[in-house]
Design a protein around this nucleic acid. Structure first.
Lengths: 339, 339
DNA sequence: CTTGTTTGTTTAAACGTTTAAGCATATTTT
DNA sequence: AAAATATGCTTAAACGTTTAAACAAACAAG
């Protein structure tokens, strides 16, 4: 790469010191009482040489990199892709850039990633924490690193986070199924200790209980992230056979629903006639399903914005209290639950 | 944030100079003939204080940031999300991190993004160039910035790029439709000057011509990126009405197909009975469509890997020739073209 | 005509590294 | 014993900025 133009180069050309150039180019000319003529000359030379400040040098001096580190589960998953996008935009509006990494729901990878980002001197982190990463969160707190958890959090560890009201959203989704006359409502969720999924399970159970539908049959099935396909298939096999097959299915996430719907197609189960469907998250696939899928829309835009806002607040000089933000999600009704 | 531990801190604790610590911690102890005992002591103190090298200072000194800048059209689009993911992984394997930005197919945004990334001293760029960004590519070449174009390129401007064989892939896709007995094959593509899309159009036309199906009816319709929905609807309206409605449809991209299939559903057109479908790119939605969609699978993993490989090569000390890589895509046959 | 203030500019130190060069001691070779 | 070499460590400069402090010159006030 061609050698870049530095302050010194401009200074030499203008016959002044580098300091003066710095003052002018950072618009501190007034404060530093730089002569009008020389200021103009400096600006002109800077333009002529196409001077671009060296961000790294600035960062070293200022101790701030104007960079946000983003750790998501998997950037190729549209849910996280969308989160990344809103964070990118919001960061840019505030003159920050984003470095990202995917943790693959793996705590070890997550920690290694966080450390890479910290070594790169990010000013703060936005993280979707993985299962078993409680220690990492505690450590970050101890290190006094500004960070915000997004999508998930640990109830036992007070920290900044931006989440949706998982319990309430799940409750509403299941209630919707019940109101459509379904009585044997199943749920497929991940087997995890993560609170956001478990809150969805709680919402499911609570809705059933409130409508006296929590029979002795346990229709809540769990799939392992690592065995997504086989476990989802097994769950559906269990739920949709026997004397009292489920007449409705609530999926805890996008990925579970996709896998589940594919299998439901294979089995030739008719939606919504035989089986009503509601899923968390949205996706092109839901719209394209022959019976477009009713889903819980997460307010990704708001979540991303809030996460950046809170993070910037935390990174400010005056340390703010921890912010725990919970946003309401919206049940978007399509056709997969009948009319 | 807590003040980080620096070489000086370790040096003070060990009672030596910072230089010595640097030698030890960068494993140049042998070369610099550092005493074994003191080396051990330094390593121990570094561990105790949890020393993490300041990447920014290193970058400033070395002139290399070990960062790759990635400019995609939109990170929330799964196609680009996947590209980003493979680039991330491959970069990480080589101790690089990735800063990204989305250009939204907008040349101005793209340029502004590229400049932000360059100011941040990225060592090289991987770019999906937008329409009308020829000057940017020329400029980057003139500036001698290492970069690789991915997914798209400008035939008139020699540069490193990694693309797929768009002509061949489209030709095969359309040939497949013809072999299934379809004679009135339509195509919906973007209206653009970008070569990758136009090569797909050329493949379409050429396949039709070779089978004497290029009648006087022009069944190639173009949609504007900015008016995706309305233009796709209009195109389908035109193609699927009249005395000789299309009996097959080839979509030039994922996003066009999704929009198109939704509309086809609305119109109640049966796939594949009335209309066979092939699309470029893959997506969950294609699998979930009642008649799973036959598609052209882009070798995203290979593309990402190659892009990083070529970029690293270009960033190396010994400047290599420009690499123009074209990878073959694969036609994945599902059910949307009949059996 | 001293003293004080304003104006315009430079110097120098700092951020945290890296690394060539320098400088003592110690050890080996003549 | 003097000379050469090896060993172990320190100094200092550099990367490109920022910014407090210093300084000189011009001007104003007493």
């Amino acid at each position: 790469m061609k050698k870049k133009v530095s302050l010194k180069d401009i200074a030499r050309e203008a016959g002044v010191s580098a300091a003066l150039v710095s003052y002018v180019l950072t618009n501190k000319a007034e404060k530093a009482r730089v002569g009008k003529d020389i200021a103009k000359k400096i600006r002109q030379i800077a333009r002529k040489l196409n001077y671009q400040p060296n961000h790294i040098a600035r960062s070293l001096k200022s101790g701030r990199s104007y960079t946000i580190g983003l750790v998501v589960a998997d950037i190729s998953n549209p849910f996280f892709g969308n989160i990344a996008r809103t964070i990118e935009d919001e960061a840019k509006r505030n003159n920050y850039t984003v470095i990202f990494g995917s943790s693959d729901e793996n705590a070890e990878k997550s920690w290694s990633l966080i450390n890479v980002l910290l070594n790169r001197q990010v000013d703060g982190l936005i993280i979707t924490p993985t299962e078993g990463s409680e220690q990492q969160v505690k450590q970050l707190k101890a290190m006094n690193v500004p960070f915000v958890l997004i999508d998930r959090y640990f109830p036992a560890i007070p920290s900044n986070h931006v989440i949706i009201n998982n319990f309430e959203s799940a409750y509403q989704a299941v209630q919707h199924l019940i109101q459509k006359g379904r009585t044997r409502v199943g749920m497929i969720a991940y087997k995890t200790s993560l609170d956001h999924i478990n809150e969805r399970k709680r919402g499911y159970r609570e809705a059933l209980r409130d409508h006296d539908l929590l029979g002795k049959n346990n229709r809540l099935k769990e799939a392992r992230y690592s065995h997504l396909k086989t476990d989802v298939h097994a769950a559906i096999d269990q739920l949709c056979t026997g004397r009292k097959p489920a007449d409705a299915l609530f999926f805890a996430t996008n990925s579970l629903a996709i896998e589940g719907l594919k299998y439901i197609n294979e089995l030739g189960i008719r939606v919504p006639e035989e089986l009503a469907i509601v899923s968390f998250d949205e996706g092109e696939a839901f719209d394209l399903f022959y019976s477009p899928v009713t889903f819980v829309r997460q307010p990704i835009l708001d979540m991303g914005r809030e996460a950046v806002r809170v993070l910037l607040e935390q990174m400010g000089d005056t340390k703010k209290d921890t912010a725990q933000i919970s946003i309401d999600a919206e049940l978007v009704i399509r056709r997969s639950c009948g009319s």
